[in-house]
Amino acid sequence: MNGLLHQIASGVASGAIYASVALALVMIYQATHHVNFAQGEMATLSSYVALTLIHVGIPYWVAFALAVALSFVLGVMVERVLMRPVMNAPVLTSVGVFIGLLLVINALDGWIFGYTIKAFPSPFHSAHPLAGGLVSPHELGETGLTLVVLTLVWVFFRFTPLGLAMRAAAYNPSSARLCGVRVNRMLGLGWGLAAAIGAAAGIMVAPVVFLDPNMMSGILLYAFAGALLGGIDNALGAVVGGFTVGVLENLFGAYVVGTELKLTVALIIIVAVLLAKPAGLFGRAVQSRV
C-alpha cells in the first residue's frame, strides 16, 4: 500500500512537469494550430542557462528568474523570426521549421555546454522526511511551484485585460483585430509565455532526470500524450491530462510493463486516445466545413 502511494506521489510530481509542458504546447496550438516540436529543446537550453548562472555564483532563485525571463525573450524571437513568415504555410513547412529549430538548439546545447550528463541543484531541502518519507522535498516543492505557475497563468488569462486580449486573438484573430487587439503582438506574447512555462518546467525536472542535451525528449513525449489525452485545444485538459499521464506512467512502470518500457506507455496512451476519443477528454470534436 505504501509502495502504491509512493508511486502515485512521484507520479503526481512528474505529472506536474508534463502538465506544464503540455500547457505550453496547447497555448501555442490554440493560437497558431501548430505543434511546437522544439518546446522541449527550448526548455533544455533554459535549464543550461540557469545552471551556468548558478555556477557563476548567482543565487538559485535569481538564476531561475533570469533563465525564465530569457526564455520569454527567446520565445518571442522565435515567433518573430521563424514562425511569422510560415504562419499560413502548409503543415509540412511548420513541422519542418520546428524540427530544424529542435536540431539547431540541440546541437547548440551540446556544442556550448558539452554532452556529459550534469547534476542540477534542487532548491528544496528538508531536515526531516515529509509525510513519513512518502515524498521527497524536491517532489513536493516541484509540484507546489508548478501549481503556483499554473494558477498564475489561469488568473492571468481569466482576470486581466491582456489575458482576455490574448484569448481573443487565439480564438478569432480577425474579430479580435477589428476590436483593436494587436493580434501579432499577442501571438508573440503567447510564444514568450509558453517558452517561459516550459523553461520553469525544465529547470524543475533537471534535478530529477539530470541535465544533458536530450533531457526533454522523453518529457516532451509524455507532454504530447497529456495534451492529447486532455484535448489538444483545451488548456485545462492539458493540465489534467499531464497529471494523469504522470500517474499512469509511474503505475504502469512499477506494476505492469517495468521501467524499461516507460516511453512505450506514452505511445500506447496516444494511440488509445486517438482510437477511443480523438478529441480528448475535454476537447471539442473536430469538424470540418465542406
Binding site: L101, I105, N106, A107, G110, W111
Partner: peptide
C-alpha cells in the same frame, strides 16, 4: 555538434 546544427539550419 556540427551535423545537427547543419541539418537544422539546412532544414529551416
Amino acid at each position: 555538434a556540427a551535423p545537427g546544427a547543419i541539418y537544422g539550419a539546412i532544414l529551416i
